[in-house]
Amino acid sequence: MIKIALRVWVVGGLLGLLLGCSPLNVLNLLTPAGTYHKVSDLKYGKDPRNRLDVYTPVNRAADVPVVVFFYGGSWNSGSRSDYRFVGEALAARGIVAVLADYRLYPQVHYQGFLDDSARVVGWTREHIRQYGGDPARLYVMGHSAGGYNAAMIALDPKWLAAVDMQPSVLSGWIGLAGPYDFLPIENPEVKPIFFFPNSPPDSQPINHISAASPPALLIAAKDDKLVNPERNTGGMARRLREQGVPVRELYFSRPGHGTLIAAFSRPMRGLAPVLDEVMAFIHGQDPASGISNDR
């Protein structure tokens, strides 16, 4: 199964290059459309990038859990349309998924994309009932730079305070290969975004943990070459445990940094049970079981 998934990824990527499509678009082309309903291009702010899409299950029931997803891209690239396979994966499992764009560098630096992320959560809490979602079961999730956004929204109260909310409104947060402790910055693309060498310490999620922080699910690729999993995922998990916050920490050996999120897609699920772990966390199964590696 894994070999087949890898073959699909490689062949799909090559076809995508030939056709002018990214590998993410290839995954979207292989994603079914009959498992969800989608409401597109909803405004949550005044900027043209302040738009979001809502994915709901086909057989929509009232008051189902809600996941707000933030994509990665080093805070300088990305589009919610690239991640239809994530919205489909969650909606097909009975979750209302909110996928949002946010302003990117050079239009904004740190803090602009966090202002937008907070507005997305505020919009979701206010409006999601009309899409069948339960605002009392609200999660934020992100991959890579989006994992940073999710962490900051969940851990630093000032962001949600700007939309008259507190992190306690979140049932939990999910970080996928997120950077949570990355000073001094080494990535040249990221340096100007965080005002290097004068990057503020309060820009780091790991500095905002308290006993009141929401429960967390942290997943990383063991051999991630872009975001150090030991320092970021491992360090975040240790700090959360020190404060008594429930956290589940998982490391997978087969996916890499990018393919960790690709494992949400149907062709790539053989790489690692990332979607299964997210669903178990949302439904409250074993939320504080500690550290796990590939079984």
Results as ranks from 00 to 15, higher is better:
Met1Cys: 08
Lys3Cys: 00
Val10Thr: 14
Gly12Arg: 07
Leu14Thr: 13
Leu14Met: 14
Leu14Glu: 06
Gly16Trp: 04
Leu17Pro: 00
Leu18Ala: 15
Leu19Met: 10
Cys21Ser: 08
Asn25Gln: 15
Val26Pro: 02
Ala33Cys: 04
His37Ser: 08
His37Cys: 06
Asp41Val: 01
Leu42Met: 13
Asp53Phe: 12
Asn59Asp: 14
Arg60Gly: 04
Gly72Leu: 02
Gly72Pro: 06
Gly73Pro: 04
Gly73Leu: 00
Ser74Met: 04
Phe85Glu: 12
Asp101Leu: 06
Asp101Phe: 05
Tyr102Ile: 03
Leu104Pro: 05
Phe113Lys: 04
Ser117Glu: 07
Ala118Ser: 03
Val121Asn: 06
Gly122Phe: 10
Arg125Glu: 14
Gly132Ala: 11
Gly133Glu: 08
Arg137Met: 09
Ala145Lys: 13
Tyr148Gln: 13
Ala154Ile: 01
Trp159Gln: 00
Leu160Gln: 10
Leu160Trp: 11
Ala161Asp: 12
Ala162Tyr: 07
Ala162Arg: 15
Val163Ser: 04
Val163Tyr: 05
Val163Trp: 02
Gln166Cys: 00
Val169Tyr: 07
Gly175Ile: 02
Leu176Val: 03
Leu176Arg: 03
Gly178Glu: 05
Pro179Ala: 11
Pro184Met: 09
Pro188Leu: 05
Val190Asn: 04
Ile193Cys: 03
Phe194Trp: 15
Ser199Trp: 11
Ser203Tyr: 13
Ser203Arg: 13
Gln204Ile: 05
Asn207Thr: 07
Asn207Pro: 01
Ala212Phe: 06
Pro214Cys: 02
Leu218Gly: 11
Ile219Val: 12
Ala221Thr: 11
Asp224Asn: 05
Lys225Cys: 02
Leu226Lys: 14
Val227Arg: 13
Val227Ser: 11
Thr233Asn: 03
Thr233His: 09
Gly235His: 07
Arg239Asp: 07
Arg241Met: 06
Gly244Arg: 05
Glu249Asp: 06
Tyr251Met: 13
Ser253Ile: 00
Arg254Cys: 03
Arg254His: 14
Gly258Ile: 07
Leu260Phe: 05
Ile261Val: 15
Ile261Tyr: 01
Ala263Glu: 04
Ala263Ile: 02
Ala263Thr: 03
Phe264Glu: 07
Arg266Cys: 00
Ala280Glu: 15
Phe281Asp: 04
His283Ile: 00
Gly290Thr: 04
Asn293Arg: 15
